[in-house]
Design a protein around this nucleic acid. Sequence first.
DNA 1: CTGAAAGCGCTTACAG
DNA 2: CTGAAAGCGCTTACAG
Lengths: 337, 337
Amino acid sequence: MRISETPVSLAEVARRAGVSSATASKALNGRVDVNEATRARVEQAARDLGYLPNSLARGLMGARTGTVGVVTTDLDGRFALPILMGVEDSLGIDRILSFLCDARGDDLREESLIASLLARRVDGLILVGRQTDPRPSLGAIPVPVVYAYAESDDPSDMSVTVDNADVGRRAARHLLDIGRRRIAQVAGEASHGASRDRVGGASSAIAAAGLLEGAGRVRFGDWSEGWGRAAAHDILDQDGDVDAILCGSDQVARGVLDTLHERRVRVPDDVAVIGVDNWEPLAAHARPPLTTVDLQLQQLGRVAAHRLQRATTGEIRGGVERLPGSLIIRDSTVLRR
Amino acid sequence: MRISETPVSLAEVARRAGVSSATASKALNGRVDVNEATRARVEQAARDLGYLPNSLARGLMGARTGTVGVVTTDLDGRFALPILMGVEDSLGIDRILSFLCDARGDDLREESLIASLLARRVDGLILVGRQTDPRPSLGAIPVPVVYAYAESDDPSDMSVTVDNADVGRRAARHLLDIGRRRIAQVAGEASHGASRDRVGGASSAIAAAGLLEGAGRVRFGDWSEGWGRAAAHDILDQDGDVDAILCGSDQVARGVLDTLHERRVRVPDDVAVIGVDNWEPLAAHARPPLTTVDLQLQQLGRVAAHRLQRATTGEIRGGVERLPGSLIIRDSTVLRR
DNA sequence: CTGAAAGCGCTTACAG
DNA sequence: CTGAAAGCGCTTACAG
C-alpha cells in the first residue's frame, strides 16, 4: 500500500479520474449504481494518489465514526490486556479502532475521559474494571456502554464478567476427579468478591461430594506469593493430612509450591496444587508446572465488544453475563506422560 | 459534569444564549474579543445543555485532531503497558487521546492499521516494538512517527529505546561495589541484541575493574526460569567459586534463586543475584526479594510522546535516544536493616 | 449511470 | 464586540 506523504482529498481523486466527487464517493464505497469502467478508473486514481478517505468527514455525516472508547483503571495489572485483545479481535481491527485510556483509579479522571471520548463521538464505550466487584453505573449517556470484568451496579446495564463461583467449582471438581479427598483452600483477599465467590463455588462442590468434613480450613489472606508460602506452612502444621491445596490465584499457588518443595512434600504425589488465572509466565514455569483455571479474559473482551456492537446497531439488551473458567491441567495435579 | 443523553450542537447552545454560533464558538474557546457577560451566558447555556463540542468537526477544520496512534506488537507482553502509561502521562490524557492497536507481529496487519489510523487523521504515530532490535522504517508518511523500544533501522527517524549496555554496566558495577569479585553471567537469548548488549556492558565494567579473569563464563540461553535453574546448576558444578550471578532478566534470576535455594547456597551471603526488568510481581516477591535493574519503560513512553509532540509542532529532530536503567536494590544482593 | 447541491458541526477571516 | 458567510472533506437525496 502506497501512502501519500500529504493527505489527498476525494476531490483530487475525482479530478484525476475525470468524474465528480459524488461519483468518486459512490465508486469507492462499492455502491451498485456505478459503471464498472468508471469505478475502475476511480479506484486506480485513488491508488495512484495514495488516497486515504478522511474518516472525520465521514463521521461528521452522522453515521458511525468507527471508534470505541475503552476506559480501564487497571492498565498496570494483568487483567486489562487480554480483555483489550479480545475487544480488538471482535471489533475487527481495521474497521473499528479503539481509544484506550487509563483512569488510574481516579473517578474525576474517569469522568473527564468519558467526556473527552464522547466529544470524539465514539460509537460506544467499554469500561474495564480492576476487580470483579460491581462498580457505579454511568447512567444514561448518548452511546451504549458495556461494563467488563467489573459489572455495573445497575442490573439493567450491559455487563460481562467472570463467573467466579464456576471458577472455584471447576478447580474443586478437578481435585475431586483425581481422587483427592482432603482439600484445603488458600484464598485471596477476603474483601474481594472474586475471592469469596471462588471459595463459595469450591466449597459447594466439595460439600456436594460429601467431603466438607475432611476438608481443611479456608484461609483468606492476600494475592501474594508470600501469603501462599505462609499459608502452606500453616496447613502442614495444622491440617497435616491434606492431599490437595486449592489456591485463589497463581501467585498464591507459587508460594504454596515453594513451601511444599522446601518441606519435601511431593507435588502432586502427596499434595496436588491448583491455582487460578493461568498467568502463563508464572504458571507454566512453576515447578512443577501449575494446573490452574483460566479466566478466559480474552473471550470476555470478545463478548463485551460483541454486545457493544449489537447495541450500536439497535438491539439493546441489558443484563449481566458471567463467563465460565477453563481448566488447564499441568503437572501440579496430574503427572503427564 | 452533566452529559446530555443526545448530542447537543453549538447552534443549540448559541440559540439558548441568544448569540450566533460564531460568537458562541469564540466564547467557549476563550478568545479575547468577547464580552465577558456574553461569554458567561454562553458558558452557562453550554453547561445547561450538557454540551460536548464535536471534535470531528473541529478536526476537519485542519488543525490538530488531538489523537495519536500507538501501534504495538507486544500487547500480551509486559513491555508495551508501562510504555503506554508513559505515553498517556505525557500526552495529557484529556487533551490527546490515543488509539491503541496491536499488529500481533503481522506486517500486513501493521500496514493496514497504519492506513486506518492515517484515515482518522491522527496527529502522530508511536510504534512500540517487542524487542530492542531495530525494525524497518516506515519511510515518509504524512505525520511524525516515533519508534519506541525497537528503534528504526533508519537513523534519521526518531527512536527512543533502552540503553542495554548501560543496564548491564549498572548491574555489574553494583556487584563490584558490594565487593563481589567472581561474577558469572546468565544471559537471555543470544539472538536478541538486548541480551548481547547487556552482557557487553557488564563485561566491560568487570574488565575495567581488572576482574574479567576471575569472572565465570557467560552463558546464553533463553529468558525463562527453567533456563535460570539449569544455568545455576551448571555454574555451581563448573565455576564453583562464584560470589555473584548477573542474570539477563528477572525470570532467569528467579530460576537461579530457586536452584541456589535448593542447593543450600545462601543469598546474598555466599552468592549475590541480580536481575533485569524490575518486573514487580516476580522480583519483589522472590525469596529473597530480587535486586534488579529497572528498564524505566514508563519514562521511555513519556520521552517518546514528548518527542512526538515536539515534532508535531514543528521542531523535527531525528536520531536514536537510549535511556539508562535504574538500579533497584533488594535483599538478593544487600541485606537491608 | 452521473453530477450539482445541500448539509454534517465546527472555525475563521472579514464586515459591520 | 458580534454575526453572516465560506469552507474543512465527505455523503446523500434528488434531478437529469
